[in-house]
């Protein structure tokens, strides 16, 4: 499957995605007014704790729900120079947690260098690994060892413990390759009690429905993966699909866009608001621009200064990012539905 960008599909353009949000205003209330009703006059950032670095849109997979529109045909990858600017930002901000994402971040030629530089600075490093990259080519086979040597936390998507539903979302053969990769990670000690090597799995519903509570699914995943394959992991992060890029495309194509948006609004949970990840995360794009989260990045809702100029990682003063107003739109309903959703899973019990 080609990416939306490759197909030159209108939805490859973030402005056209935002126009779809305008279309449903009237059927569903603007997110900002729902926030206001819940007693929040906008959404404001606290002190940023996690720097989420998106090192590029290049990926060996083309998952149906991908909000990045990543794939093998994308060429946007972060340069070494921009990575250096990220490291300088870490130095001047004192932020101590880094979350590396993509695409498949390992396809960036400077990925391993970035990981080791972050670790040398004493940062906790999380990496979003799609699993199949580990077995995709022999030059990636040693990734589990590399992760372990650098004590990197591995966060990997596995939407179901059976092939049918996993492959439907992520592509034919992905399930089997993912199981193989999980076994390699386990062999390195990942997910094993007392190894100190954390392996978390990410669950996105395979379609236009919301997920059951994280704990319920985690129990199920642990039981099934252990019984069937002897695989162990630490936590399951349950994440809602946000109506962005290829998931928005799926919703529109299948005629379920309005219904899904209504579902998210019906499930709005004000208790999730204080815990929203944009309040303590900063997202940086392959070009070095700053965003409130990876979703805003894909919608090109940039963090700006008071004059409206886009903030760049090379020049932004760290203190300028605290207490900033977060850019919200209708996609934010995905983070506040039910028990809430973030890159670290559910937000409230």
């Amino acid at each position: 499957m080609a990416t939306l960008a490759r197909q030159q599909h209108p939805l490859a353009d973030s402005a056209s995605q935002l126009r779809h949000y305008d279309e449903v205003t009237g059927i569903i209330p603007p997110f900002s007014s729902t926030l206001q009703k819940a007693g929040y006059d906008g959404l404001f950032a606290g002190r940023p704790e996690i720097l989420q670095i998106n090192v590029g849109k290049l990926c060996n997979q083309t998952c149906r729900h991908c909000h990045v529109d990543a794939g093998p045909d994308r060429r946007e990858v972060m340069s070494r120079e921009t990575m250096e600017q990220c490291l300088q930002f870490l130095d001047r901000s004192g932020m101590k947690t880094v979350d590396i994402t993509g695409g498949a971040p390992e396809l960036n030629p400077h990925y391993r260098w970035l990981v080791s530089e972050c670790r040398q600075r004493g940062c906790r490093v999380m990496t979003r690994c799609n699993l199949t990259i580990i077995t995709a080519h022999e030059r990636f086979n040693d990734l589990p060892r590399f992760f372990a040597q650098h004590q990197v936390e591995v966060i990997s998507s596995l939407p179901f413990y059976e092939a049918s539903r996993t492959d439907r979302q992520r592509g034919t053969g992905v399930f089997d390759a993912s199981i193989e990769a999980l076994l390699l990670l386990n062999a390195e000690g990942y997910g094993k009690p007392d190894s100190g090597l954390q392996l978390h799995l990410v669950y996105n519903p395979v379609g236009a429905f919301l997920s059951a509570p994280q704990q319920m699914l985690e129990q199920q995943f642990k039981k099934e993966l252990s019984n069937r394959y002897g695989i162990v992991f630490n936590n399951l992060y349950v994440i809602n699909n946000l109506p962005i890029s290829r998931f928005l495309h799926f919703l529109l194509q299948s005629g379920q866009y309005e219904e899904y948006m209504k579902k998210l609004v019906m499930a709005f949970n004000p208790a999730t608001v204080p815990a929203l990840m944009c309040r303590y995360t900063l997202s940086v794009s392959w070009e070095g621009f700053l965003y409130d989260c990876d979703f805003n990045q894909m919608l090109d809702l940039k963090i700006t200064d008071q004059a409206g100029n886009a903030r760049h990682i090379s020049t932004v003063p760290a203190e300028a990012l605290q207490e900033r107003r977060i850019m919200v739109s209708q996609h934010c309903y995905g983070c506040t539905a039910g028990s809430g959703s973030s890159c670290g899973g559910q937000l409230v019990p």
Partner: peptide
């Protein structure tokens, strides 16, 4: 049932 993780 889908949300609660049952297979087809």
């Amino acid at each position: 049932a889908l949300a609660k993780g049952y297979s087809e």
